[in-house]
Amino acid sequence: MTKQELDEKIEELEQALEGLPPLQKTLNESKIGQLKMQIQGMTLSDIKEKLETISLPEKNDIEANIEAATDATQAQNKRVDAFNKVYGFIKGRLGLG
């Protein structure tokens, strides 16, 4: 049911209340008023529900993968540094420098 259809139904209900005794009329008008309040309360429901359908990967998983990759890169750099040192040493021994 669209909002417009809902408004039309409410209007029909309001018209049907005409002619009722004052107590019954007031009680029912109040119920219709509450229905209108609920409709107002649903103003953001569609936007909220749409946003809630967004499914993102687990934050912790991403962080763990970033950390693992960073660690591996640093380890790789250290290996290259170590290689440089050893190579420099061998180079020195061979008199290449």
Binding site: M37, Q38, Q40, G41, M42, T43, L44, S45, I47, K48, L51, E52
Partner: peptide, 12 residues
């Protein structure tokens, strides 16, 4: 319903 509006806004 006023609270619901604020809750939905917080979720957004």
């Amino acid at each position: 319903n006023k609270i619901k509006l604020l809750e939905d806004l917080a979720t957004i």
